[in-house]
Design a protein around this nucleic acid. Structure first.
Lengths: 196, 196
DNA sequence: CATTTTTCTTATCATAGGTCAATGCCGGTG
DNA sequence: CACCGGCATTGACCTATGATAAGAAAAATG
């Protein structure tokens, strides 16, 4: 299974099989069962996850008990909890597995350590993080400026396969609306399609 | 003025005056006048800005001509446009100066180049980026789960001095509400304070 | 310091989306 | 195969926030 991770790295940066062998002993692969909790709010996490197969998510629960999805992490996405990584501080979010998932587990100092052997790991890290920021800025912009319908259409375009894999109430929770509203949005869209 | 930037770096990582001297020749300081545009949507940016004094912002304009503030960058904050940095692609956002601002201008390869001389620059970069992500996740969570009033109170706590420096319509734009709504929220809060 | 421009407030009305409740629809599981 | 629990849909109603318009206040400008 680590083979998949190696391929991912090699697609991104120039890293040889030999180099990968040198750093990969710090890596473990872990399987999470469907609905398994990975991290609770209030716990301190020191791991970074790279999803090989399956689907993870991070989310919060507000004072009224409602769930809000911060991030989906399907295949080839990264998931981590920054309070723990940066400050050994408690997590504000929950992490769990939506589907049975195989993920690479990287200790939080993996990048630093492996970069001592393979310097380009720093480049990889920076480009990953910058990319995450780019995505989040786009999402913030949508939340600030777009209607529920626009956000849903954008979601479908961005994550066509997630749209099929996750229940609608989770998509609603990611979009910042209620499941009922999403249902209405979909109904409206269906109507429009007929007319066109 | 670069002295200020050196102090910032030295607070974050172990970098000597000599090391700083070696990398600082790549840096320029630029002054932006109040209301000066730094980058238009559609342009390609290859710079990163570190604010020494003043206030920058990134924002979008939607199809109805409304402005949405993605980020404020007051003193000691970073501002950049990721499409340009990562892919030489066109910017989706505008950058401009809210106040007359002095900022360090870093070419996009500054981190990589300076890390060749001062390796810990990579650490700095990663912690900056992770921190930015942490902030944005918090903001996304607020946009998903909190009312206008809650978001405003959170804003005041997070940026107490910005609250005084920027016009309310900009705060409203950052919070994702209209200036009129923010005005109402403030009125309600004032009432509650009297009662308490 | 008078004038113009921008920002803030207030009031009224409109609407997107939330809430609550009922119903139907599966896909498990005993 | 009957039952159950999670999901999705729908309808009726409600509320937070948006739209519009007007005036007041504050800030910029000559």
């Amino acid at each position: 299974m680590l083979e998949l991770f190696k391929q991912y790295l090699q697609k991104k940066v120039a890293i040889t099989d030999e180099q990968f062998a040198l750093i990969s002993d710090k890596l473990k692969i872990k399987t999470f069962e469907k609905n398994e909790m990975i991290l609770m709010k209030g716990e301190v996490s020191s791991h970074v996850y790279f999803v090989l197969d399956g689907l993870l998510r991070s989310y919060s629960i507000d004072s009224k008990g409602k769930t809000h999805i911060i991030q989906f992490a399907p295949e080839q996405w990264w998931l981590s909890e920054r309070n723990g990584i940066l400050f050994n501080a408690e997590s504000e979010f929950f992490l769990d597995a939506i589907e049975t998932t195989k993920a690479v587990v990287l200790p939080k100092d993996f990048i630093t350590e492996s970069a001592k052997i393979v310097p380009c790991m720093y480049e990889l890290n920076a480009s990953m993080l910058n990319n995450a920021i780019r995505f989040m800025q786009k999402r913030i912009n949508m939340l600030l400026s777009a209607t529920a319908e626009e956000r849903y259409l954008d979601f479908i375009k961005l994550y066509p396969n997630l749209t099929l894999r996750v229940p609608q109430w989770m998509i609603a929770s990611y979009l910042g609306i209620t499941p009922e509203s999403l249902s209405r949005v979909r109904k409206d869209l269906a109507h429009k399609h007929f007319k066109a």
